[in-house]
């Protein structure tokens, strides 16, 4: 597609905003560390107080990067779904994809312990959790896709997505009822969502998952643009429908599933960020939109995490609550202002 103008300035500003929110995120937390000390710490100097170095390098920096991966990946999966389903309200949460991931995680965290007393939670456990959540989200996505083939009405599709969400959460409730208190607690904490507490290995795995999703999306740029015209037009432009649809679904499933596995079901980022991005980037060209939503999502997630951290206090709010508190009003505001949501 022809970008009628370049967005270099907007991209530069977004990258600067990302760096600012990264610094803000790292410099705030339950332990008050002066900003100048954080900067010199990041510069490689030894801190006045030894524990500061540990806090910044072992806790805050990994957490910040988790936020970046989570925000960027979820926003990208939201963009992919809005284009694939030709629906401005599509997103990993609305269409039941996150519930699918929850179901996968719940089956693993609570279900397997019922059957076999499965407790091995090392690195292998993380991989299993990621795979279980990805499979869960992937399965729901496939079912939604099959239904979407039959039901052309987008409203019906959304309602079906919500119903799938209800069904999966019902199964999760049943599992929770029969689960041990310990496993239940682990699942509940997982479902609050959290970007903290990831080890370096987990962080690398998450980064790998997001990278895979991004690479798959980049190879789909052309077909994503063609899908903007509708599937028949895309086909007449030489797009192989089955193949490109499958690649986009796998990318979405890997992104939404993998991220949900590590950070819990995080609401509204996937739905709201693509719309917020289009307020600045007034184009439908995915070559521009993919990097833009990822930057935007990363910034939003860093800011939400900074808010969740409640500066200078020991409490950390569930990140899921914060993204909903920020995301839901944004969606309402967009709807009221524009009357009609478009993608």
């Amino acid at each position: 597609m022809l970008a009628s103008r370049t967005y270099r300035l907007s991209f530069v500003l977004l990258v600067l905003a990302l760096l600012c929110s990264l610094l803000l995120n790292i410099s705030s937390g339950s332990v008050s560390i002066p900003f100048s000390d954080v900067l010199s710490l990041l510069g490689g100097t030894t801190p006045e107080i030894a524990s500061w170095g540990y806090i910044v390098w072992e806790y805050r920096v990994p957490k910040a990067f988790t936020s970046i991966f989570v925000g960027a990946g979820l926003s990208l999966s939201g963009l992919l779904m809005q284009t694939l389903f030709r629906n401005p309200l599509a997103g990993p949460f609305v269409l039941g994809i996150s519930s699918g991931a929850s179901l996968g995680a719940a089956l693993l965290l609570m279900g397997t312990s019922l059957l076999a007393g499965y407790t091995a939670f090392g690195f292998l456990g993380d991989v299993t959790l990621a795979i279980a959540a990805s499979i869960g989200s992937f399965l729901v996505l496939l079912v939604v896709m099959v239904v979407a083939q039959r039901v052309k009405d987008t409203m019906a599709l959304l309602i079906i997505g919500l119903m799938f969400g209800s069904i999966t959460s019902a199964i999760v409730s049943v599992l929770a009822y029969f689960s041990s208190a310990e496993n239940l607690q682990r699942f509940i904490f997982w479902s609050f969502g959290s970007v903290g507490n990831l080890s370096i290995n987990q962080l690398l795995l998450l980064g790998g998952i997001v990278l895979l999703g991004v690479l798959l999306s980049i190879t789909s740029i052309k077909s994503l643009n063609a899908f903007l015209l509708g599937e028949h037009y895309a086909q007449s432009l030489g797009v192989s429908l089955k193949k490109s649809r499958l690649i986009i679904i796998i990318a979405t499933g890997v992104l939404a599933g993998g991220i949900t596995a590590f950070a819990g079901p995080i609401a509204f980022v996937g739905l709201a960020v693509p719309h917020l991005t289009r307020q600045i980037f007034d184009t439908m060209e995915h070559k521009v939109l993919i990097p833009a939503v990822m930057l935007y999502g990363a910034i939003l997630m860093l800011l939400c995490d900074t808010l969740a951290q409640l500066p200078n206090s020991a409490s950390v709010l569930p990140i899921n609550a914060i993204t909903s508190l920020v995301g839901a009003p944004v969606v309402i505001w967009l709807l009221v202002r524009k009357r009609k949501m478009m993608f």
Binding site: S4, L229, F343
Partner: peptide, 10 residues
């Protein structure tokens, strides 16, 4: 067209 947010040129 599925997306009416496209410009004519796009």
């Amino acid at each position: 067209p599925a997306s009416k947010n496209l410009t004519v040129q796009e």
